[in-house]
Amino acid sequence: MHTVKLYGRFLIVYMRSQLEYRFSFFGDVFVNMLTFVSLYLGFWVLFQTFPSMDGWGFWEVLFLNNLNLMTYATCSMFLWGPMIQLENTVRTGEFDNFLVRPYPPLLILVFRQFGHTFIGHLIVSSCVLALCTYQLSIQWTVGNALFLLFCLIGGILIQGAIMIAAASSAFWVIRSKAVLEMSIYTVRSFINYPISIYVQSIQLLLTFLIPYAIVNYYPASLFFGKEERSALFYFFPVISVAVGALLFLLACKIFSRGVARYDSSGS
């Protein structure tokens, strides 16, 4: 599609110009990798003493976190920047600029930037995936690979949907950045651990209201056979993608609703 090619062209130019500042570029990437090193090291320390986390072992917990990380990083590369800045963009009236283009404003917001710092996250998660494969002797059969791929796609869509929907609060409330940060940091921190450790109500919240659990817990537990590898194993990836797509469309709809209400009060 024309729009995809347009963004592709931008990406090429953007990466070329970023790589000119070699030091900051690699600094950005490296520093972002540290985030997960400290988290995963923390897990490692815990598992030196404690044998299991509700039936999950160290590498399984790492795999769980990895799903979260991979989907979050991929979606953030395109969305994090504009969504975090949306509160400011709307408040100052800078959002005006995005309404006078021949494309929907959400697309324009994405097209103008690229979160190259998240590449660091992807490097870490790829390495971790390889490590988990080795440590857990995962066989990458066609079935397993497809399962993972679909769950990743579904996960990316869900992460994106939550990001867009939360950021859209900028059109209704002043402190929308706080709403966004609570959604993508605070609430998402629940899924750093298998949600089976939580009380029922929290599990329900994370499955049906803010469905982060679909991003990593259910795929991982099905993958490792925590629950019966029943027909659910074959259906789940499809459910994941379907739910993801639906939520993503819903989020875009919420965004458009917000735009319709935009008052452009910045002088």
Binding site: L46, T49, F50, P51, S52, M53, D54, G55, R175, A178, E181, M182, Y185, T186, V187, S189, F190, N192, Y193, S196, I197, Y198, V199, I202
Partner: peptide, 24 residues
């Protein structure tokens, strides 16, 4: 907001330690 974040983190830790000790 910061207080809310801290409370959530505390909640998570509560469940985490409970689960870890139960497993042990």
């Amino acid at each position: 907001i910061t207080t809310a974040n801290r409370l959530v983190a505390l909640l998570v830790q509560f469940f985490l330690w409970t689960a870890l000790y139960a497993g042990a």
